[in-house]
């Protein structure tokens, strides 16, 4: 596709702004629905916006013993990394903006950047709580990256065996345009379901939400990595968490439920595009609801060794099994 540079900049700005707003809106829903499930009234939906504005005007405190430039740089890197992923995701009926310039492997790396940034920021804060949190984040990162990688690579490999040679199967646009559910046999569908399950389990870990919120664990290490962050820096981490929620949700949607309604409803043009975007938002909401909100209110926080065991054994086994089933399906 050929887009002029000016157009691309405009679309990029819209995507960035939309991603940020959407993340905060979903955060609002998250808090409201979690409160409702717990029998509380909860904050108004626009509370995350208030929070960000409030944090932005608050004083930004850097601890005396912290490595100042690292400490201040990390929130920016974290937000920049997750915001970049937005450009590689198919949103609604629209193909990824930078689809031609990077693929799934890049997304995998970009997804690890916020976690790394928080880790470095935590160590730079030189507070015992932040150090413990950073160590835990490191263990978490090593635990969930493996099943995540298996799931993503598995999908791309299976697609490469179906599409003609030379197609860029690692591009999310291509993956979204050719949903695998219809292209594989019954065994393959079971395999896909397992991979989807693995990805849904990885999602709350990637987002540091209960039961995997151990790097922040409020009652244990008082916010851990974020213990020393305040003001603008905290707001940036907050925003990057919000955007990351959208990114993870959109990734699951793009990989496993990339269907649109416009074809079904027989709509074309602007109406069809609008319908697809709305449907995309609904799918995103369902994914976030199932894998973040419900999980977050339904479990206790696990310990770091339990998380590592969970991801290395059952979740990895599940994703391997899924991969195996996909392979068997191809042979048959």
């Amino acid at each position: 596709m050929t887009v002029s540079v000016g157009n691309a900049v405009w679309q990029g700005l819209i995507i960035l702004l939309g991603g940020g707003l959407l993340g905060l809106v979903y955060k609002g829903f998250d808090r409201k629905l979690a409160a409702q499930m717990q029998g509380r009234i909860g904050p108004p939906l626009r509370q995350p916006f208030f929070d960000v504005v409030k944090l932005m005007v608050k004083e930004n405190i850097v601890p005396d013993h912290a490595v100042g430039w690292l400490f201040n740089l990390m929130p920016v890197i974290s937000l920049a990394a997750v915001a970049t992923i937005l450009f590689y995701l198919p949103l609604g009926g629209y193909a990824p903006l930078l689809g031609g310039y990077g693929d799934l492997v890049l997304i995998l790396y970009l997804l690890a950047v916020p976690a790394l940034a928080m880790m470095v920021g935590g160590f730079a804060a030189s507070s015992p709580y932040a150090s413990v949190g950073a160590q835990r984040e490191m263990v978490m990162l090593m635990s969930y990256e493996f099943p995540l990688a298996i799931a993503l690579v598995g999908l791309a490999w299976r697609l490469s065996t179906i599409l003609p040679a030379g197609s860029s199967v690692f591009s999310l646009g291509v993956l979204a345009a050719n949903p695998l559910w219809g292209l594989v046999g019954p065994l393959g569908i079971v395999g896909l379901a397992l991979l989807m399950l693995a990805l849904l389990v990885v999602t709350p870990a990637e987002l540091s939400k209960i039961p995997f919120d151990i790097p922040e664990a409020e009652t244990e290490i008082a916010g851990g990595i974020l213990a020393e962050y305040s003001g603008r820096n905290l707001a940036l981490f907050y925003l990057s968490d919000a955007v990351k929620t959208v990114v993870m949700g959109a990734l699951v949607v793009a990989l496993f439920i990339p269907y649109g309604l416009s074809g079904l409803a027989g709509l074309t043009g602007a109406a069809g595009a609008a319908l697809d975007v709305v449907f995309f938002l609904v799918k995103l909401f369902v994914v976030v609801f199932v894998s973040v909100i419900v999980v977050r209110v339904g479990f206790a926080r696990l310990k770091v060794n339990q998380v590592a065991r969970l991801f290395w054994l059952p979740v990895t086994a599940f994703s391997f099994l899924g991969l195996l089933l996909l392979a068997v399906d191809r042979v048959i």
């Binding site: 979690a34 499930m37 717990q38 029998g39 509380r40 209960i210 039961p211 919120d213 664990a217 409020e218 009652t219 209110v297 339904g298 479990f299 206790a300 926080r301």
Partner: peptide
């Protein structure tokens, strides 16, 4: 106890 475990839902339900 539930809150200390990070299980806030149980905290709210039991206090209810």
């Amino acid at each position: 106890g539930a809150h200390e475990l990070g299980f806030d839902t149980l905290l709210h339900l039991t206090w209810n």
